[in-house]
């Protein structure tokens, strides 16, 4: 209920911003405001508290067969929004999790090398939490999902261009069965 109301408020706000700023000819501001509103609406309002994580040594890389389920999730620059083309990966993960009720996952959040290391550490955590939130909406219990952020400190691919960056802005999964 509360969540739905929140989304409504932001949709209304978004429309209002288009109307107000659009006619004033401030296209960029209205687009920015709309993006911000969308971004806010895309994320749930409510806290989903983290539960204490098990010893990290319990989490392993998924087996080669499970790698086809636990694929990395990629993000746009400076964003933790789950992109539409990444959603089917999360749906596959959610169904696997439902069939394996004892399993827990560790979601690693990562960033590309651009920008502040500190901000990227927080952004990496938000990416991991964004994945966790999405899986919660697909019915996976939040207590089975833990997060760790490495920010820009552990790139998957070395290199200093978009070809490397796009593979470094990711959420990566480890599994405890």
């Amino acid at each position: 209920m509360k969540k739905a109301t929140g989304v409504m408020v932001y949709l209304v706000l978004g429309i209002c911003m288009i109307t107000c700023f659009g006619c004033a000819g401030r296209k960029k501001s209205s687009r920015d405001a709309l993006l911000a509103a969308e971004r806010d609406a895309a994320l749930s309002f409510e806290d989903i508290a983290l539960t204490d994580a098990p010893d990290m040594s319990r989490f392993k890389e998924p087996s080669p067969t499970l790698k086809s389920v636990f694929k990395d999730i990629y993000f746009q620059y400076d964003s933790s929004v789950i992109l539409e083309d990444q959603r089917n990966i999360l749906e596959n993960i959610a169904s696997w999790m439902k069939n394996h009720p004892q399993a827990a996952i560790l979601v690693e959040g990562h960033c590309d090398e651009r920008g502040s290391n500190e901000y990227n550490l927080a952004l990496g955590e938000q990416r991991a939490l964004s994945v966790r939130r999405y899986l919660v909406t697909l019915g996976v219990s939040s207590s089975r999902m833990h997060t760790v952020s490495y920010g820009e400190e552990k790139p998957a691919v070395s290199g200093h261009d978009e070809e490397a960056w796009k593979f470094n802005r990711r959420a990566h999964f480890l599994l405890a069965e």
């Binding site: 409510e46 508290a49 983290l50 539960t51 550490l121 927080a122 939490l129 997060t147 952020s149």
Partner: peptide, 24 residues
């Protein structure tokens, strides 16, 4: 649980500001 980072002492040395993600 989650991120514990960017801790900064208050000028009187009694408190810490920091970022936590424990609430999600």
């Amino acid at each position: 649980a989650g991120l514990n980072a960017f801790a900064a002492f208050s000028p009187d040395g009694n408190s810490i500001a920091l970022v936590l993600s424990k609430d999600g």
